[in-house]
């Protein structure tokens, strides 16, 4: 089974690669190795990651990427999916499937235990993200709270709130900023709003086209009825003239016979 991207394929012998290429290859597998790592350690880490990717279910990785709402081709390989997942640092796992959570946990180096409750696995996965990641997340969370307060300042708490229409609406701007940073979170929100706007406009255009087509159909129907009525009238006039000529002819025959 090929788990390598065509752009970042390994050389025939991994151990013969120089350290910088090995580190670059590790990055393509979603591994962040320190620059001063020893060649042997890097080699071990890369091989371990390769084995892990072989063990992981591709559909589970795809579950995580879909849940993260990161655009990706449906045919994306395990390495690409792993690379995308390791760049994201979600701290809340609502809506993620169990197999997706398992894949995410294993990519973060968490060992799965039999019969372990989901909440416990989520806690260990969150913890495995690293101290600095948690600090950054807290920082983004605070920033997200501030931005959310600024953006939704006009909404009073005692206002009636409808239920969210779908999963995306349920995600708060605070959560988006916490996960993707200030620019990424706001961009994600704007992209969602732009998508909604485009979808609404397309629906409106479609409705307008449908109305026009109905109007054209109605007018053509009226034209057809008028045309048919016109043709029938011509036929009637033709028959009347023919009858007139027949009467004349009959009279002529009668007078000729009488004379």
């Amino acid at each position: 089974m090929n788990t390598h991207d065509s752009s970042a394929g390994p050389s025939p012998s991994l151990s013969e690669l120089p350290l910088d290429e090995l580190v670059r290859y590790a990055e393509s597998l979603g591994l962040d190795l320190p620059a001063d790592i020893a060649h042997g350690e890097a080699l071990t880490a890369v091989r371990a990651r390769q084995e892990l990717l072989l063990e992981l279910d591709r559909d589970a990785l795809l579950d995580v990427v879909i849940w993260l709402r990161v655009p990706v081709q449906q045919s994306a390989g395990r390495e690409q999916l792993a690379r995308i997942i390791t760049r994201q640092h979600p701290a809340h796992f609502d809506g993620l499937s169990d197999r997706g959570l398992h894949a995410l946990a294993r990519l973060r180096g968490v060992t799965l235990r039999d019969g372990e409750p989901r909440t416990e696995l989520e806690r260990r996965t969150r913890k495995a993200d690293g101290w600095w990641a948690r600090v950054r997340r807290t920082q983004r969370s605070v920033l997200g709270s501030l931005v959310a307060r600024l953006v939704t300042a006009s909404e009073r708490d005692d206002d009636y709130q409808f239920l969210p229409e779908d999963g995306l609406s349920a995600r708060t701007i605070k959560r988006d900023i916490e996960q993707s940073g200030l620019v990424g979170g706001v961009a994600k929100r704007l992209r969602g709003a732009a998508d909604d706007y485009v979808r609404e406009k397309l629906d409106e255009i479609e409705r307008r086209i449908d109305r026009k087509l109905d109007e054209i159909d109605r007018r053509l129907g009226e034209w057809r009825d008028r045309e048919m009525s016109h043709r029938l009238r011509i036929l009637k006039i033709t028959l009347l003239v023919t009858i007139l000529v027949a009467v004349l002819s009959l009279l002529y025959d009668y007078f000729r016979g009488a004379s």
Binding site: S229, L232, R233, L235, K236, L239, L240, T242, I243, A246, V247, S249, L250, D253, G257
Partner: peptide, 21 residues
């Protein structure tokens, strides 16, 4: 109504044609 008129006219025409010697 147009069809009825046409049928009546056609019947009259056939009758007139039959009256011809």
């Amino acid at each position: 109504w147009e069809f009825v008129q046409l049928a009546a006219l056609a019947a009259i025409l056939v009758f007139l044609l039959k009256l011809h010697r």
